[in-house]
């Protein structure tokens, strides 16, 4: 088998085995309800993780997305509370702001040749600070349009529901896969992750691609913020602290190389589902502390880092013998 599919295969295998173990212990977990909830509960994380996958594939990192999600939530809540504009207009405004914010970070990273870690760390503080400036309280959103959106779902056989936000996440993943593998932008993202100096020599527009990547991540963080505000019906500046780290974990567990250049968007979806599955198991059990989620995620991350390191060694050795 092509070695680059190995991490993805491992992720899928782990998910299937974990799900089988869960079902063996709690047969109720084999239901479309559980699957529907898995999608709904992790929708905002999944959407943000798609953006993070692009960033990591290019060899970068985006630490700002948790703060951007919180900012978007507070922005929407304040706007809908203080004015009478339609939520759809507010959505467009929020997306415009977060996309511009991401593009700005990308421009700084490219033109000032700054490490993405530092630039997006600054972006994280800035976005979180802006959220606090808007409001320090948790503001409920009571617009009727929100209720309409929340009640929209597709009913699965067996009583499960694909909610609007769950379906949106699946759509974002599908579009992400299309962009990554079927557009020149996607090819350029992988090229950048393979080595920026070589990519430049081969004619990849480095600046345009870098700005595009962070703008996409900003856009998806904004979309994730909208989904999160639909999910919680509120905006709160202290929400989604550390979500960027959950997203990074999902990307790595999904088999994407942290150094960039290798991985799949689809893997991130499975990474998200594994995280959600562990959470669901703990809920079903009822007696376990929810911190077990973190512990298991931590162990999984270690396992995947080791797997990646091992793979690099194996391919290197194979090439030397070729």
């Amino acid at each position: 088998m092509n070695p680059r599919y190995l991490p993805l295969t491992a992720t899928i295998a782990i998910f299937l085995i974990a799900y089988a173990v869960c079902i063996a212990q709690y047969p109720n977990m084999l239901s479309t309800r559980v699957i529907g909830n898995l999608l709904t509960d992790n929708a905002f994380l999944g959407i943000a993780a798609v953006g993070m996958t692009f960033v990591i594939l290019s060899g970068g990192i985006d630490l700002s997305i948790g703060a951007v999600i919180a900012f978007t939530g507070v922005f929407l809540a304040v706007l809908l509370q203080a004015t009478s504009i339609h939520p759809l207009v507010a959505f467009v405004l929020a997306l415009a702001i977060t996309t511009a914010f991401g593009a700005l970070m990308g421009a700084i990273i490219h033109h000032l040749e700054m490490p993405p870690f530092i630039v997006t760390l600054a972006g994280m503080f800035l976005a979180r600070g802006m959220a606090f400036v808007l409001s320090i309280d948790s503001i409920p959103i009571k617009h009727p349009f929100y209720a309409t959106l929340k009640s929209a779902y597709y009913k699965l056989p067996g009583g499960g529901r694909i909610t609007l936000i769950g379906g949106l996440m699946l759509l974002v993943f599908a579009l992400g896969i299309l962009i990554a593998h079927r557009t020149r932008f996607g090819a350029n993202v992988y090229a950048l992750g393979g080595g920026a100096p070589t990519a430049r020599l081969m004619g990849v527009p480095i600046g345009r691609t870098t700005i595009g990547i962070y703008a996409l991540s900003g856009f998806l963080a904004g979309l994730s913020g909208i989904v999160f505000s639909l999910y919680t019906s509120a905006g709160y500046s202290l929400a989604t602290v550390g979500v960027e780290l959950d997203a990074i974990a999902a990307v790595v567990i999904g088999g994407t190389l942290l150094t960039g250049g290798s991985g799949f968007i689809a893997g991130t979806l499975v990474g998200i589902l594994i995280q959600g599955l562990i959470q669901t198991y703990i809920t079903f059990d009822g007696s376990l502390s929810s911190w077990w989620t973190k512990i298991l995620i931590g162990l999984l991350l270690f396992a995947f880092i080791l797997l990646q390191k091992g793979l690099i060694l194996v391919t290197d050795r194979r090439r030397r013998h070729a």
């Binding site: 020149r184 090819a187 350029n188 992988y190 090229a191 992750g193 393979g194 080595g195 070589t198 990519a199 020599l201 081969m202 004619g203 990849v204 250049g261 290798s262």
Partner: peptide
Amino acid sequence: NLLPNLTVAENLFLG
């Protein structure tokens, strides 16, 4: 000066 993480075809036709 090619990219080791892309396929042979992608390397030939990048851009």
